[in-house]
Each structure stands twice: as C-alpha cells, then as structure tokens.
C-alpha cells in the first residue's frame, strides 16, 4: 500500500475505504460470504440452538510476546463460544482505527487474524471499519462477535450444576498472558522469556466433549479465566453453585518465570489474565478420562486437577479456600480492582 498511515479518508466510506478493505482485509480474510460485501451475511444453520457472543479488545500494547490484538480478538470470541460447548461457525469483525496508525501495523494485525481464523477453523463473514481522529482512540480497537452451534446439543453447561464432589481441572499454566502484558506495559526493565498463552480452545473442548461420549452429562462447566484470573472465575462459579471449593497450591501449574515476575512485582498469579486456558469442572467419576483427553490435545498438555468442590453452603456465602504449599489455608477472594505493582 502506498499510504503509510491511516488517515481520516480511510473512514470516509469512499474509494480510500474500499482500497483499504481490499488490500488489507479481503486479500487475507476472503471467503464466499465476506466477499459479497453485503450489509449482512446469511448463515445456513440447521441447528435450533445457537451460541452467540461478543467481545471488545483494547489491549495495550497491541503487539506483545506470543500474540497481538488481532489474534487475541479471534481467540477471545472463539473461546467464549467454546466455553458454552459450541463450535464457532461465523464471526464478525469490527475495527476502530486511530488516525496515524501505520498501515504496516494494520497489515500485521490482519495477518495474525488470518492465521488465528485458520487455526480455529472459522471465517469472518461480516466486517466493518471506522476511523477516528488522532487521540480519540488508542491506535486500534477491535470488536468481534460470533455464533456457534453446540458440539452436543443435549449438554447443558452451567455453574449452577456444580455440586459437592466435583473436580476442578485447569488446562495448563496460569498467569502467562497477564504477566506478559503487565511486564511489557510497565516498562519494568526485566529480561525474561515469557509470552502470552493466547490460543483457540475450541479444539480442546471438542476433544473432551466427543471423547466422553455418553458421559457428556457429567461435564458441568467450561470457563476461560481471562480478566480477574483463576481466582475470580472460581469465585463466580462458587457463588452461582453456592458451593465451597478447595484448591491445592502445589497442584496449580505456574511457570517458574511467571512466579518470579509475580514475586518481584508483588502480584498473585491466581489473579492474572489467561487467554488460552480453561477451567473444567466435572463429576469425579470421569476425571481420569477427561484429564487424559485434555492432555492428548496440544492446548491441554499440562492439564492438572487443582481442587474440588465442597459442600453446598445454602444461605451462607460460599468461599474458595487454598491449601498453601506449606499446608496452611487461606481464602481466595474475588479480584477487587486492577492489580497494582507494589512498593519494593
């Protein structure tokens, strides 16, 4: 592309817009439905159950180790569908670009959107681009929505189904994404090899649901612990099910480097965001089967059972407890606000 940066003409709806869309997006994301460039896409779906979700992405920095805002915007929505046991069928892509964004950067984002779509086996079927004046947005904001159809229509996933005795499984190390972003954003000069875990989880979910076959009803919840981290997601499930939970710190996978970053910045990995991990709660009787299935998948290799659901507390408010490495116990509460690096 000749123009080096996005300017307000790119949002005019005229020729400049058309050129931008063709050269940056259609070139990479083209498919039968998108290239019609109609006001809306017609989806041919036979299922009478649809999962439908939306999410906005404003991450800063837009490029980070292990991903960028483009791949994140696809993984985020694909994963939200997957957590309801749905196979993603079609996505929408809405972009808000700040004047002055380098077209090179936009192309990098588009390229990574393309790769993420290919891996998740889903297409963008409708899209929109707007440009705002410099200072009115932070380089690039993305919204994606998605529809999906259930892998197993009879399966009802819900936190309310969680009950005493169920086991809690996590699909791998926690805090990688949050630690990476915090570190890159903070300007804290530290040399460490960690990256975001951003990845699509629909394949992992499909493997588990199909793998358990007629035991599908013993699966209770899939959740991706994004903002607020593992601690927040488990507290939400505890509240919805009215059950206490116990976690074993020794069993919660945290990479050594993430642990180090947390120690130095005074953060707790339980509260850091993940973009490629899921928490699964199922009946105790199928835990080995589920764990085996998860470990057989690339994105579930490091799956671990990290705790279990305890008694229903009825009228009290349920708590999540952590058994610490030295055998002590403490409460794991919900995240209150943005984690702040400490005085040190």
């Amino acid at each position: 592309m000749k123009d080096k940066t996005i300017h307000i003409d790119h949002g005019s709806g005229g020729l400049a817009t058309k050129k931008l869309i063709e050269e940056v997006f259609l070139k990479r994301l083209s498919n039968k439905r998108l290239e019609r460039l109609e006001d809306s896409a017609i989806l041919d779906i036979s299922s009478n159950q649809l999962a439908f979700t939306t999410d906005s992405f404003v991450v800063d920095p837009i490029f980070f180790t292990g991903g960028d805002i483009g791949s994140l915007s696809i993984h985020g929505t694909v994963n939200d569908l997957a957590m309801q046991g749905a196979r993603p069928v079609a996505l929408s892509l809405g972009l808000i670009l700040e004047e002055g964004l380098l077209i090179d950067e936009l192309e990098r984002v588009a390229e990574s959107i393309k790769d993420a779509l290919l891996e998740a086996k889903v297409e963008v079927v409708t899209a929109d681009t707007k440009v705002v004046q410099r200072g009115k947005a932070d380089r690039i904001f993305i919204n994606t929505s998605g529809v999906g159809i259930p892998y197993e229509p009879r399966l009802f996933l819900s936190s309310e189904r969680v009950e005493e005795g169920d086991v809690i499984i996590v699909s791998g190390s926690i805090g990688d994404h949050g630690a990476t972003i915090l570190l890159e954003r903070s300007g804290f000069k530290m040399d460490v090899s960690i990256g975001s875990d951003s990845c699509p989880l629909n394949g992992l979910v499909e493997t588990v649901i199909k793998g358990v076959g007629e035991d599908f009803n013993k699966l209770k919840v899939f959740r991706d612990p994004t903002r607020g981290g593992l601690a927040t997601v488990l507290n939400e499930i505890a509240q919805a099910s009215n059950c206490n939970m116990i976690l074993y710190e020794d069993d919660i996978p945290v990479k050594e480097e993430v642990r180090g970053v947390c120690e130095i910045l005074g953060l707790d990995p339980l509260y850091l965001a993940n973009e490629g991990k899921m928490v699964l709660i199922c009946k105790e009787s199928i835990k080995e089967k589920v764990l085996g299935l998860m470990k057989s998948h690339l994105y579930g290799r490091d799956s671990r059972i990290i705790g279990k659901v305890e008694r229903n507390v009825k009228d009290e408010s349920p708590i999540v407890t952590l058994k610490t490495t030295i055998g002590g116990e403490r409460i794991v509460s919900i995240l209150s606000g943005q984690p702040l690096p400490r005085i040190c």
Partner: peptide
C-alpha cells in the same frame, strides 16, 4: 503470613499481630 496461611497452622493461643511496618 497470610499468603501462606501461617496463622492457622500455629497452636491455639499463639497469636500473631501486625505492627507499624507498612510504610503507606
């Protein structure tokens, strides 16, 4: 002490109280 749940591991009657050591 809180992070590792140490208070709960101590014998009953052994209390830890916090002092004036948080600068803020």
């Amino acid at each position: 002490i809180f992070r590792y749940g140490i208070r709960g591991l101590l014998p009953e009657g052994l209390f830890l109280v916090s002092g004036p050591g948080c600068p803020v």
